[in-house]
Amino acid sequence: MRGLTKLSKRQRISAVVLGIVALAFITLDLGGSSLRAAHTGMRGVLGSLYRGTDSVLGPVRRFVEGVPTAATNQARIEQLRSDNAKLKAQLAAQAADKRTAAALHQLKLSANATGSTVLAARVIAFGPGAGFDWTVTLDAGSTSGVRVGQTVTDGVGLVGRVLHADANTSVVLLAADPGSGVGVRDLRNGEIGVAKGQGNKGFAFTPLSPDAVIKVGDLVETGPLNSSSFVAGIAVGTITSVRVSADGTVTATIVPTVSPTALDLVGVIVHPGVQGTTRTPITPTESTSSTSATNTTTQTTQAGSQQAGHR
């Protein structure tokens, strides 16, 4: 306590006053919407600054992030190491372009498979308080059609949903956020349940029915339609372990399809396609053999569409 005695009386008073002001801010922000305008304004300003900074620092970040996954190009990298810095920078830019092209291709495939309209956007910033804010900022906003609550995918799996949409940027709450829950369906037996985000460790899946048999290796996707805040039919992950507790509750761990810390190009589903399509009821047919044939066709189509959803 030698240190605290060094404070002057004025400093001690200002410390107490500022502490009270900070606590008042927390209370105000938790209690209501009185600080919403300040939040929105500051996010808008920082969002546009992030865009500018990212255009300069983005290539550097993407190069450093690409280093651990570059092992497959080892021979090529060895050769390039002897080259000058200019060539290295070119390679980094090329790798980033390639990754972008692959990601865009994936988004296009998923848009084709599900019939939904997907808006491509780049991650330009991660939550300022990494570790307790599982959010990312995208470089597309309400002027491009992004609205609060829309589902975000990377073309393969679920990323999260839009939390705030400013004019030119938007903030996405990742599905991995430990405060977020996703309504999901086990693809093997159709059991539905809730997958709670667990950050880097994936999701904890609890089926609604306590009798559900969940197996390791089961694929899990969002759904069922219209009962969760996410678009249905997007891959969430694969079950890696199942635990049954003493009271019979089943909890399974899901390894996510999309790593929440390696996001770059993502797609915002601005218009889910499959909802609201008109269909004709199934009518009984004369011969039994043709009925079974129809059933088989239906099953095959279902399996096909599920596979397509997982591409």
């Binding site: 900070a22 927390i26 600080l35 300040a38 996010r43 300022p128 308080g129 307790f132 804010d133 709450l173």
Partner: peptide, 15 residues
């Protein structure tokens, strides 16, 4: 500033 620019309640990082 950092608080207002993020999703959590303002004042936490300030404190």
């Amino acid at each position: 500033l950092s608080d207002l620019g993020s999703a959590h309640p303002a004042g936490v990082l300030a404190l």
